[in-house]
Design a binder for these strands. Structure first.
Length: 128
DNA sequence: TTGTTGACCTCTT
DNA sequence: CAAGAGGCCAACA
């Protein structure tokens, strides 16, 4: 067994590295989502420059439960506007409840007028 | 250590 | 139009 005494720069997973982590960026964007608005995993991924890594955004949401402050993951849905992640909330109806408080209409686990409520960070934050 | 899975998106057949 | 496969990065066994 070899015991490398030298430590690499990536000794710890980037997810634990607050200096630069995909998750932190995702959280920052999600928190900046205006109330009553929603976005998609791909939009966030695209804003971060890696739209191909949309899966990581979803994975980041998985850790969002432990993230602080808590991330409004209920404002993030897939490209179809479907509440794909509702099953991962504390309760299957929690996500819909939260969206209802945002004056967002949800039916059949799909956001109504998703296109109008869609909040593209790559677009909105670009103007800012 | 490798291999599999995952709240997705897009292209191709 | 519908179904399948590829690709990305990170966590878990």
């Amino acid at each position: 067994m070899k015991k490398p005494k030298l430590k690499k720069t990536t000794e710890k997973p980037r997810s634990l590295n607050k200096e630069y982590s995909f998750f932190e960026d995702v959280y920052s964007v999600v928190r900046q989502i205006p109330k009553g608005r929603v976005t998609s995993y791909g939009a966030i991924a695209n804003y971060l420059g890696t739209k191909l890594s949309a899966r990581m955004v979803g994975w980041a949401m998985n850790a969002a439960h432990s993230a602080k402050p808590k991330v409004p993951a209920h404002r993030v849905v897939n490209r179809n506007g479907m509440l794909s992640g509702k099953a991962h909330f504390a309760t299957p109806t929690l996500m819909e409840e939260l969206l209802a408080k945002e004056k967002i209409k949800v039916e059949e686990d799909i956001i109504i007028d998703f296109e109008k409520l869609f909040w593209d960070p790559a677009k909105e934050l670009e103007i800012n």
